[in-house]
């Protein structure tokens, strides 16, 4: 896969984040280019998920800047990040358990809906037209991820692999420009991983969505990602294409290891 020629979409500069005395991230900088698939890898506790949380505004770093599409921001709240087109999935599935698959994905389009409370209470008229228009969009995503047969099922009853897929669908429903995936393949078997890889590549390909993902399966990471950032103890120890990372001495020592 050739490195994409897109210009920089997101850049994080000198990010430092600590919780009390624990330094989760120190002086981390990297960028993400338009249209690429970027991976963040590293051992447990390296600060990968914290990094995603900084990008979409759940955590506020003590130091450093995040600029997304030319807009610099110090303190970000998740609502604004979502409005700017950043969507994400979670490491431990964070679906709305009591709702059906369809409602979960419809919730992903929350920010795109305009009807006020009164219009929603009356329902017929503008609200119904809006609901149906968004339903059509959601059905496209359902079709894309091949989950038609479970659309009316409460997500709590679904097996793990499908829940992961529904969570991806919910994130896609927002039509994001930047998609953050926190371990999208954790706990899956080989086939489910293959499916998920296919979906991620298709999303990148068909919708042109830029993707940042955290993943522990090195085979997957090396195969589908354009560039990789490696974190260890909250510091960046490597950054480059899969080939560069594979031959990076520091990364091999800290994380990849060598075969004996």
């Amino acid at each position: 896969m050739s490195p994409p020629a897109g210009h920089v979409m997101l850049s994080v500069d000198n990010i430092a984040l600590s919780f009390g005395g624990v330094r989760a991230l120190s002086d981390v900088s990297f960028d993400v280019r338009e249209g690429e698939i970027r991976a963040i890898i590293g051992p447990n506790g390296a600060g990968k998920s914290s990094m995603l949380n900084v990008i979409n505004g759940v955590y506020h770093p003590q130091q450093g800047d995040v600029s997304f599409r030319g807009e610099m921001r110090r303190r970000m709240d998740p609502h604004r990040a979502a409005a700017q087109g950043i969507a994400r999935t979670f490491q431990n599935i964070a679906l709305f358990k009591g709702m059906t698959v369809l409602d979960n994905i419809m919730t992903g389009r929350n920010l795109k809906m305009r009807c006020n409370l009164l219009e929603q209470a009356i329902y017929i008229g503008r609200n119904r037209r809006e609901e149906i228009a968004h339903r059509e969009k959601v059905e496209e995503i359902i079709d894309f991820l091949q989950i038609e047969h479970i659309r009316k099922t409460p997500v709590g009853r679904l097996p793990y692999g499908l829940q992961k897929r529904v969570e991806l669908a919910r994130a896609l429903a927002a039509e994001p420009t930047l998609l953050l995936l926190d371990e999208p393949m954790a706990g899956m078997n080989v086939e489910e991983k293959q499916d998920m890889c296919r979906f991620i590549l298709d999303v990148n390909d068909e919708f042109g969505t830029t993707i940042v993902l955290i993943e522990h399966d090195m085979g997957v990471v090396m195969d589908i990602c354009d560039r990789i950032v490696v974190l260890d103890y909250g510091r960046k120890i490597g950054d480059g294409t899969p080939d560069e990372i594979r031959s990076n001495k520091v990364v091999i020592d800290a994380y990849l290891g060598v075969s004996h």
Binding site: V58, N127, R170
Partner: peptide, 27 residues
Amino acid sequence: NLVRSRIGRAWMAVRDMDVAAEVIGIR
């Protein structure tokens, strides 16, 4: 009508998983 519209889904989202709801853009 309210519970089957946007606000109803937002209520249930906050009920079921508030962090995820916030990340979706629900205040």
